[in-house]
Each structure stands twice: as structure tokens, then as C-alpha cells.
Design a protein around this nucleic acid. Structure first.
Length: 270
DNA sequence: ATTATATCCTGATCGC
DNA sequence: TGCGATCAGGATATAA
């Protein structure tokens, strides 16, 4: 379940491996994958690999000086994995959905459940998501407060909407609310200035720490080398139903909000 | 307009 | 041991 820290991990690992390489071909091997038609890529070079929300963004140069650059956005959704293949020869073909061969090495896209997507863009602007990145300087507490507006949604499902903030998913939404001492059922419009400050601070600290830990591997996530993340050992509430809260000792509970599990502590979140 | 629900898809797990 | 039911949660289309 790749969220912002997991996608950031993949992008950071892939950048030094891919930047400067020249593309031989990109083949979508599975017709059921939700991938837009692949444009002509041969002769193009990879100029940049970055994260845009929960997408890995790859910038290709034009094949000639006169040709415009091109951006590929890969969304890993639930089970997508971008795995670097240093050498050809016996590669795991199970759930292999696409492969990009380069002048040296190759990149494989695995996706058990085929929820992942490939999209192509003509400019970085076109690829930009509508929501604000929680780690960007744009996201001040005041801006967050403005985003809350008059919404009657509960804060937990609100945090998952990608049209407001981009990058949070089910695991970090619970973790961030616990860090900020805010109950997941709180109506967004009732959150005050101090709570916006705490929420913003919690987003930044948790996401940054999770990036340092190369993400959370709950079940499926792997980085570009097939390794798992290590943030799961820091999880304060997610998947800890019945355990003691690390902050106040009360029991962590699980509740379902909009068909998704929310984990929280009644003792210290209000 | 806003919020809730069904859907996509596969594999792991659970109860019988 | 096997088998059907349930759950996991990314985002979007559709319903309310």
C-alpha cells in the first residue's frame, strides 16, 4: 500500500539508477493493465525521476534536440512495484506487467492486482496533481485551515482525499491523527487553529521519519531493490488493535470509517 | 455540491 | 485438507 513515503523511497532509489540512461523500449506485457498507449521512446534519455503525490514521475528528453520532453507517471496503487533489474537473464515473471529496457539495465513493473496505472504527460504542469503535497512549504497551518473550509466530513476520510492533500493513505492517516492527538471522527469544519498546527506538524514529522525508514511494509510494499521498509516498527496505532497506546497506555481500537479501518486511541485523541 | 458506496483485482487468512 | 467467505485499501464512477 504505497503512500507518500513509499513512493518517495522508490523515486529516490531509482533516480541515480535511471537518470542518464537511454531508453531502448518500454513494453506493457499485460493488456489488462491500466496503461495508456506507450509513445515512441527509443532514443529518449531519462532526465529526472521524482515523486508527484503518490506517483513516480519519469522525465524523458526528446530523442532529438527539437523534440519535446515527455513525462511518465506510474501509480503503484496497492500492489505495484518498480524493481530495478541490473542484468538480464532469469527474471521473475510472476505478475510482471511491464518492462523498460535501457542502454544499461532495465526496470520492471510488477503488480499482483493490476490496480496500478501508467499515464503520459506533455509537461510537468500537466502531470501536477490538484492536491497539495503535505511536505511542501505551501502547506502552512493557515492553508490547511482554509482547505478544511466548511466540510462536514470526518477528518480521517478527509485526509485520504487526494483532491485536497496528496500522498496520504490509510496507514499514515491513522498515524498522523494519533501524533496530533485528534480523534478520527472529528468533523473537519470544527478543527481549530491549534489543531491545524498540530496536524501539519504531525504530517511533516511522521512522513519524514517514514521516508528515513524507507517506508512501511505492511504486506506488499517493496522498494526498487525488492527490499521491505522498516517504518512498521514505529507504528503507534495502525494494526495495533487491543495493544496499549505508547503514549497514554489506553487500548488502541479499530473502527471502520467508509469501509476502511481506522486505528486510534480513545485515551489521548479527542 | 457534498458525501457515501460499489467496484476493480488477487492472495492471505479464517471458520467450518 | 479443502472450500467458500471475508478482508486488505489505491482511486474513481456512480448513487444518494
Amino acid at each position: 500500500m504505497p503512500e507518500l513515503p513509499e513512493v518517495e523511497t522508490v523515486a529516490r532509489q531509482l533516480a541515480p539508477l535511471l537518470v542518464g540512461r537511454e531508453v531502448r523500449e518500454l513494453v506493457v506485457l499485460d493488456p489488462r493493465l491500466r496503461a495508456a498507449p506507450v509513445p515512441r521512446l527509443s532514443g529518449r534519455g531519462i532526465e529526472q525521476v521524482s515523486r508527484s503525490g503518490k506517483r513516480v514521475l519519469v522525465r524523458f528528453s526528446g530523442a532529438r534536440a527539437s523534440q519535446a520532453p515527455l513525462w511518465l507517471a506510474v501509480h503503484l496503487r496497492m500492489t505495484g512495484r518498480l524493481i530495478w533489474l541490473a542484468a538480464e537473464g532469469r527474471i521473475d515473471r510472476a505478475h510482471l506487467r511491464a518492462r523498460m529496457r535501457l542502454d544499461r539495465g532495465a526496470l520492471a513493473f510488477y503488480d499482483t492486482r493490476r490496480f496500478g496505472t501508467f499515464e503520459w504527460f506533455r509537461s510537468a504542469d500537466e502531470a501536477r496533481p490538484s492536491g497539495i503535497d503535505p511536505l511542501s512549504d505551501e502547506l502552512t497551518a493557515a492553508r490547511l485551515r482554509a482547505l478544511f473550509g466548511t466540510s462536514r466530513q470526518s477528518i480521517k476520510p478527509w485526509l485520504l482525499r487526494q483532491d485536497r492533500l496528496v500522498g496520504l493513505g490509510n496507514i499514515y492517516a491513522s498515524e498522523i491523527l494519533h501524533e496530533a492527538c485528534i480523534a478520527p471522527s472529528r468533523e473537519v469544519r470544527t478543527l481549530g487553529d491549534d489543531e491545524a498546527v498540530r496536524l501539519r506538524r504531525a504530517m511533516r514529522s511522521i512522513l519524514k521519519r517514514a521516508i528515513r525508514a524507507c517506508g512501511t511494509t505492511f504486506s506488499d510494499f517493496q522498494d526498487s531493490h525488492g527490499e521491505i521498509g522498516s517504518y512498521q516498527r514505529f507504528l503507534a496505532v495502525y494494526d495495533r488493535e487491543g495493544d496499549a497506546c505508547r503514549r497514554c497506555g489506553d487500548l488502541v481500537v479499530r473502527e471502520v470509517q467508509q469501509q476502511r479501518s481506522t486505528y486510534w486511541c480513545r485515551g489521548c485523541q479527542r
